[in-house]
């Protein structure tokens, strides 16, 4: 088995052309990023609205749970039958999958902003928008980005379903490998998917570190120390 995997990775044919690793990785990455952007465009504003106003929180948590319960493969197949277009079906399926973690992270981030801080912002004479962008969003950023990271991990793992409806990406290796009982290829597909997930998570962790304000990190560190002390 190990030998088959090594053979697969060392065979130069697997690194070239339309079925080569670079192409498949880029395709996979393309699905993930497209779905992530679309899901963020939908989920972040809703999460901000609900978190800022406090209106509709119950509805939001409930619908998030419903979406999470949907089997992605079933959804994509259904969408494929509906639209008879594999790109649209796969992307919509992935977007639907990525919405709940981003929505939950954004909403939870705003909810977690200290009441006293929100109160002070209002009492200082900030208007709603000023309070949201100057105070709530920067403080909520760690949880918002945490939601994005969760979404990315799920997207990388699940983008493989695109292969079921005839698209590219790393899912191809799994599906094609299974079809010809080439377990080296199947394992290689799984390993590449896992590696992609890890690399993206590391990149996002760096982005998170760069974007989260220093004061917020210090406050978090302080809170942790208090809990453990």
């Amino acid at each position: 088995m190990i030998g088959e995997i090594i053979d697969w990775f060392t065979s130069s044919a697997n690194w070239q052309g339309a079925d080569g690793v670079p192409t498949r990785v880029l395709q996979h990455l393309g699905y993930v990023l497209l779905a992530l952007v679309l899901a963020s465009v939908i989920a972040v504003p809703i999460g901000l609205y609900v978190g800022h106003t406090g209106r509709g929180g119950v509805l939001l948590v409930g619908s998030g749970n419903v979406i999470r319960a949907l089997p992605t493969l079933g959804l994509v197949t259904f969408l494929f039958l509906l639209f008879t277009d594999s790109d649209v079906a796969a992307i919509i399926g992935l977007v639907v999958l990525a919405i709940p973690p981003i929505l939950a992270g954004t909403y939870a981030g705003l909810q977690a902003v200290d009441r006293a801080v929100v109160d002070a912002a209002e009492g200082m004479g900030m208007r709603g928008g000023q309070r949201l962008w100057q105070i709530e969003v920067p403080i909520a950023l760690p949880l918002v980005l945490g939601g994005v990271r969760n979404a990315v991990l799920q997207l990388v793992a699940t983008a493989a379903v695109a292969a079921y409806v005839g698209l590219g990406g790393l899912g191809r290796y799994l599906l094609d490998g299974l079809a010809i009982l080439d377990y080296g290829e199947v394992a290689a597909g799984a390993i590449l998917t896992a590696l992609l997930a890890i690399v993206l998570d590391v990149v996002l962790a760096a982005v998170q570190r760069a974007l989260v304000p220093r004061g917020v990190r210090l406050a978090e560190a302080g809170a942790k120390k208090e809990v453990s002390a």
């Binding site: 200290d114 801080v117 109160d119 002070a120 009492g123 200082m124 920067p138």
Partner: peptide, 30 residues
Amino acid sequence: PALLRRGIGYVIQHAGLFPHRTVLSNVATV
């Protein structure tokens, strides 16, 4: 209301300082 509040100092129990801003920019808020 917002203009009224900018003209009235307001201090609360747990200070409610903005954690992501330095002390100086907290004070410079209004």
